[in-house]
Design a protein around this nucleic acid. Sequence first.
DNA 1: TAGATTGTTAATCGATTAACAATC
DNA 2: TAGATTGTTAATCGATTAACAATC
Lengths: 223, 223
Amino acid sequence: MPHTVIEVSRSTLKRLPLYLHVLEDLHRQKQEYISCTALALKFDFGSIQVRKDLEVTGAEGTAKIGFRISDLIRNIKTFLGWHNVQDAFLVGAGNLGKALLGYRDFDLYGLNIVAVFDKDPAKIGTRIFDKEVMPVEKMPGLAARMHVNIGIVAVSAIAAQEVVNVMVASGIRAVWNFAPAPLEIPQGIILENARLTQSLAVLSNKLKCLLEEETKESVPCPM
Amino acid sequence: MPHTVIEVSRSTLKRLPLYLHVLEDLHRQKQEYISCTALALKFDFGSIQVRKDLEVTGAEGTAKIGFRISDLIRNIKTFLGWHNVQDAFLVGAGNLGKALLGYRDFDLYGLNIVAVFDKDPAKIGTRIFDKEVMPVEKMPGLAARMHVNIGIVAVSAIAAQEVVNVMVASGIRAVWNFAPAPLEIPQGIILENARLTQSLAVLSNKLKCLLEEETKESVPCPM
DNA sequence: TAGATTGTTAATCGATTAACAATC
DNA sequence: TAGATTGTTAATCGATTAACAATC
């Protein structure tokens, strides 16, 4: 049987964790089934979209009843690869790095930060959430030994490219970048930007529009 | 002259800060002009898209030369509303809250965190980056007095809805949410989710695909 | 002038939405 | 049975890409 390529849009991929959060919540409340219609009510998009999205994970529902919540959770997690927890290296022991280390739920999302690195000699050797901060030079050796695939960049924009270069040289396959800088990576390495300023840009523009509308008695904002 | 509505896609809005980062970098290096072609090289999308995006900000270039960098920076910032810095309240003095407070560049992006709130009595009264943590109950009074429009939610998923309710009651117009929970807000209030798990989902799925490709000798990943 | 680049209009592509038969 | 919901195919909508004239 030929394994067909499942084409998934970035948009769908981004909505799946939203469903997951709600589903896990309902699961804790001992609810067993949910329909797309009911699930869609939690969001500002329709039930057809929810059904389409769930379809890609291979979830199957029953007419009139809906989907078994435990099945959906399992399907989404498997689809995202969150069942096999991946080890990750974090570079940057600043405020953001600390926040990421302190986020206890990452293991639920398939991520396990196993080591922290920094360039600052003052930080090296200190412990953050029970993890020792190590010099960046130690990354290549450790990456190879521990078979780590994911690297998290939590340094300044200026330092980011250099960090990524070390990561790539260390054999890291996927980079999660929190620095507000465009990074250059070789073909075959995955780069995902978690840029806060993108989200802030959307917020700012909408707010600007809203405030202008009020003061200037101008045209309505497209919201 | 009739003020026409400028329809801007969310995608364009999200790319604008990317351009801005690069442009500010070039500006620091005293470069004066740049063409769309040159700017596009920094990203994994084409020059036509860059030109289209810049168009919405009202930027004007000259053939053969390109765009004046200082003009572009001004146009983008104005378009996003980042020239008029907005005051914001931050709720949640945990690790993420601290990281956000410590991010010194927010004022460049039109955001100025003026106060921090928390529910935890142990945190109230302490100082983080020179800002005193106050009880959430004080928010409504302060919001009205200080005319604060933006509220930043940096609390757990369970506490998030409650926090937003207080924000809305306080007269907050735009909510920037970092909690992994779908929030209900009344019409007319802006909600923007900065969810890390969305970004992580994309990364995880790509990595899963990459790793499966290697082991199973299966079909290539759509990257 | 020649060639690169802008500005704008048209074509393509993909994602969202709608429609409807099948099913429990 | 009737009605709600799934699963799937078709239509619409919007964003990206291409094409090309205008311009410096």
